[in-house]
Structure formats: C-alpha cells, structure tokens
Design a protein around this nucleic acid. Structure first.
Length: 574
DNA sequence: GCCGTTTTCGGCCCGACTGTTTTCAGTCG
C-alpha cells in the first residue's frame, strides 16, 4: 500500500513549493490531495488514471503524479525540487514562529540551511539585526528550536481526554462562564491529539483568561489577548482557550472543532449560497459584518442555513459528510449507550489485574448484559497464556458462574494467537468448546506483506475463529502497523463471515477509522472491544465507539449491540 | 494545483495575535 508514502511525498512537495515561493493555491491543492490519498483505502497502484481523477481534489496533474509514483516509486518534479532546495530548510519549518517566508529569507541573507546553523546564529545574536527580526524573535526562535529538535509529540485521544477533564474542571467554577466545551480534534475523536482546544462563552472574558493563564497546570503563557489565550501545559502540550459572546457560541464551536478541510468546504458552500461564515456567525455576503448574524447561537442553526443536517463532529473530516448531510443521508451513528457487552477482556489468569469475578461484576455495573473473558493462549509466555488444561478449567468455572446469574452472562472466549505460519495456538477441539474466538497476531511482526496477509487469511479460514483482534497491530507512537494487504483481508473476512475488531486500547485504536468504513461498506461485521486488562479499562469502550463513529458505523454494524441471548445464538449458529 | 446550475478562465476561507512596525506582514489554526 503506497498511499501513505505518496501522501507524505505530496506534503513534502507542498512545503518545498512554499519555500520556492510558488502559487499558494497550488500549494493548497497539493495539501488537499495529500489528505485525500491518506484517507483512501483503495491502493493507488491498483487504480487507473481515470479512477484517480475521480477522487475529489485530484485532477489530471496529481493523478499523473500518483501514477508515476506507483510505477516508478518516485516523482520527477519532487526530485527536482529536492535538488534545488536544501533539505534543512524543511526541518526549519518545524520551528514555531518560522514559516516559509522567514526561512527563505534566512537562507538568502545568512545562508542558514539547517537547525544547527539556525541555533548558532540565534545564540550569536546574528538574527536581531535583520529587518523584520529583533531580539524577541531571536528568543522565540531559540525556544521553538528546543521543541523542533525533540520532535512534535501527539497524545493519544485517551490521554487528551484526561488532560482536558483536568483543565475543564479547573475552569468550570470561574465567575461569568455561560458555556464551556472542548473543541478541536479531541471533539472530533481523532486517534491522536496535538493540542487541546477549549471554547467558552462568558459575561466576563478577562476573568476566564486571567484564571486560565495563571492556572496550576500552566507552565508558560504563549499568547494572551482579549478573546484568546494559549498556554503550555506541564507535559509540554499546548492548550488554547477562546472566549466568545454567547450569541456566537455555536458558530465558534463549529469553527474551532474543524477539521480545517471541513470548514473550508463549508465556507465555500456558504459563498455559493450567498453567505459568509466566520467564528461569530453566518451573514449574508451583502450585509455589513457588524450587523447581527443570521445564525450563530448553535451549530444546528449554521448547518441548517446551509441546507445541511447537523453533522456529528466525528464525521467532519471532508470525507463526503457534507454531501451526505445535504441529502439527509447521514448515518445514525452508534452510541456508547447501544453497547451491551464486550467480547475481549483479560483476567488475572493471564496478564490482567482483576479476577474473572471482579471483571464480570464491573461489566455488569456498567449496565452491560454480558462479557467475553478472553485470556491469552499458551504461546504468549510473557502474558502467562493459558495451557489447554488451564483453559478447560476456566471454561468449567465460567459455566458455574453463569448458572448463578440469569441477567448477566460471561462468554468463554479466548484471544488465541495466530502463529507465524497462520495455524492457531489451540487445536480445533478446544476452540470448539469456546463461545467466541478472537484470533490475534502477537509475534513475527516483520513478515513480508504477502506472508502476513496469507497468515491472517488462513486464521480466518478456520471455522472456529469468530473475529480478528487488532488487525493492523500498530501501537501509536511505538510500533508501525504490520505490512498487510487490506483488500485481500477484507475480502476474506467477507467470504468467511469473520468479524473484525475495533480495539479501544488508547495506543491501539485499531482498526483505523478509514479501514472500518471500508469494512462496513463490504458488509463485514465489527466488534468494538476494550481489550481491558483491569476493571477500569472497561471504560476504553468509549474509545472503541469513538473510532466506530468516525468510521460512520451504526448500531446494526456492531456485534456488541446484541443482547446476551442474541450473542449466544450468534455464537452457536456459526 | 483544482473546479464549474452564475464560469473552461478566474476564482480559490477567515480572523487573532505577535513582533515589528508607524499601518502591516507573517504565522497559526
């Protein structure tokens, strides 16, 4: 799958073109197309030129580049740009406060073409005498350099939600606050979050901003004006606060939730309809901006004026949601309240922290009707995986437990390893005794694409395997996804009726949202699972559901919305 | 670069903050 590589190449080309002072709209087109290729599940190397050109934002020029890239692994114009523009200038763009204009200027005047030379020049006080640069700018560049050298860290959504709850909890009590909501990529449920965005309406904006920049979690103030402030949190993450009038809250919430691409598309639509939209409201193009807006108090008003259904934040990625909203065809997204159980959790029998009884009690307390207790199989020694004898013992234990309760059922499940050759870690007789089998890869991650793909398909062909766990195997910030052919695997999944898991562990969130969308389109059933290793991790269902929502999934697409009885029937009827 | 029930040419989202300036460019989201 070359899509991500090609998207990366286009992003780099956009930056190089910017350094080359090329047409800004051309640069925007490259970035927009890069986004489109990133979200595409069909492999570009299997697409014809005509198919490529049907991707929104991709015309003949970029389609030909995609074609050139999949045939030759390179793009000539990209190589030309690389030859002409020093590589170091690209890394200089990562320094906060430096954009293409300033980087180019530094290169032309002082021949600075690397982070090292930039640091030396700033420390030597050589920048302050340049026109447009002064002492303050020099200091800021040095600060920006520290961050750029470390590289930009993004938090997982799970971590971001915790940090957000702390900040909101602190701000909540402030005098004069009317509404206070998280915005940005966190509200869209993106798998990782770069910084925290908070929106607030208040009768006393000064007070909120002052309290915010002096909060205990605020390490340093990056900017502070009348309507917005940014601070760096103790963990180095940036947190932005915007304060608006309550009449503009909906417009501002829409605006600061993004995504940027969604907002650009929305504004283009507004212009066609004779309106203009900003963070204060929706106006007629002909009207004075000081006039009261036609809409702005709620998001629903804005979307309605533009002839659209309200679009849930998770869908605002410019992946067809505006077209669907126009036709009134948005999905009715699954909600956490629809979930009645989880197939995948662990106990202290293998590597979990809580006993079977504790896990079951906690699941019941969440309002669930059933829980799949799916300890590891024997191959995973480091997790104390269960031998066949121990697993049979556990099956007996679960049967006894279920006799005591009618209203709550534990499924005897297991997360069985898919061994390197695609065979399963338990024999068929044992798997037959289990209610539900999740097959996962936990070893030999570096197999070539073809072998890994065959390995997983072989597991799906086993009649006892119900579901594939964390298909891509990626660990956010730690490990790349294994090389697999998604098209072939989805096809096998459809053919064998094997479900695919959306794993809600914060560093997994696996399937990827775009892959889950493709799977849904093929009629593949999805299980949203926690992979909980302790009772508190059962709350990771919220992350799994968020991924499902970003993938446009509805209640009917997800196995976990079945009642205990339906799950039993489904397991027996396979 | 892309795109088109106003267009195949001429558009292409919009505003806040900073640091540098005497009214604004660059950056950022």
């Amino acid at each position: 799958m070359l899509n991500r590589q090609f998207a990366g190449l286009l992003y780099e080309m956009a930056n190089l073109l910017e350094l080359d002072d090329d047409n800004p709209f051309r640069i925007r087109a490259y970035k927009k197309a890069a986004m489109a290729f990133e979200g595409l599940t069909k492999d570009i190397s299997t697409m014809t030129l005509e198919e490529l050109m049907r991707i929104p934002g991709v015309g003949r020029g970029l389609a030909e580049k995609a074609d050139e890239f999949s045939r030759t692994g390179r793009v000539k114009e990209h190589q030309d740009l690389r030859r002409r523009i020093p590589q170091g200038l690209l890394s200089m763009l990562n320094v906060s406060g430096l954009g293409a204009k300033r980087v180019r200027f530094l290169y032309e005047t002082l021949k600075i073409d690397s982070l090292g030379k930039l640091k030396a020049a700033a420390e030597g006080g050589k920048l302050r005498s340049l026109p447009g640069f002064a002492e303050k700018m020099e200091t800021n560049i040095l600060k920006g350099l520290e961050v750029a050298v470390q590289g930009v860290e993004r938090m997982t959504l799970g971590e971001a939600r915790l940090r957000m709850a702390e900040v909101l909890g602190f701000l909540k009590g402030t005098d004069g606050i009317i509404r206070l909501e998280p915005a940005g990529s966190l509200r869209r449920g993106k798998e990782t979050v770069g910084d925290l965005d908070i929106l607030c309406s208040s009768r006393n904006p000064d007070k909120v901003i002052t309290r915010f920049i002096h909060a205990p979690f605020s390490k340093r103030t990056l900017a502070a004006g009348e309507t917005k402030a940014s601070v760096e949190l103790m963990n180095g993450i940036q947190c932005d606060l915007r304060v608006v009038e309550d009449d503009s809250f909906g417009a501002a919430l829409q605006y600061f939730t993004g995504s940027k691409e969604h907002n650009v598309a929305l504004r283009e639509r507004a212009l066609k309809l004779g309106y203009t939209v900003n963070e204060y409201g929706l106006y007629r193009t002909s009207d004075d901006k000081k006039k009261k807006p036609l809409a702005g108090k709620t998001e629903e008003e804005i979307y309605k004026k533009l002839g659209l259904q309200w679009i849930p934040p998770e869908l605002r990625e410019q992946r067809g949601e505006i077209e669907a909203a126009e036709k009134g065809k948005l999905p009715k997204l699954i909600e956490e309240a629809d979930i009645r159980g989880c197939f995948h959790s662990h106990t202290s029998e293998s590597d979990g922290r809580n006993t079977l009884e504790e896990m079951a009690a906690a699941a019941r307390k969440k309002g669930w009707e059933w829980l799949g207790s799916a300890d590891h199989s024997q191959a995973l020694k480091m997790t104390n995986g269960l031998s066949p004898d121990r697993m049979r013992e556990k099956i007996g234990k679960i049967k006894a437990l279920n006799k005591k309760s009618k209203s709550f059922q534990v499924l005897c499940s297991s997360e069985v390893d898919i061994l390197a050759d695609g065979s399963m870690d338990y024999d068929d007789d044992l798997m037959k005794e289990l209610d539900f089998v999740i097959a996962s890869v936990h070893s030999s991650f570096k197999q070539p694409e073809e072998k890994m793909t065959e390995r997983i398909i072989r597991a799906m062909d086993n009649p006892h395997v119900d579901c594939i766990g964390h298909l891509s195997g990626r660990l956010l910030g730690q490990r790349e996804a294994y090389a697999i052919d998604y098209e072939k695997i989805f096809e096998a999944s459809r053919r064998t009726g094997t479900a695919l898991e959306i794993n809600g562990q914060p560093d997994r969130q696996d399937l990827y949202d775009v892959h889950a969308t493709t799977a849904k389109g093929m009629g593949i059933r999805i299980a949203t699972n926690t992979d909980a290793h302790s009772i508190d991790q059962l709350d990771h269902m919220s992350l799994a559901v968020t991924v499902a929502r970003r993938a446009w999934l509805e209640k009917k697409d997800v196995l976990n919305t079945m009642s205990a009885r339906e799950v039993r029937e489904w397991c027996d009827g396979e």
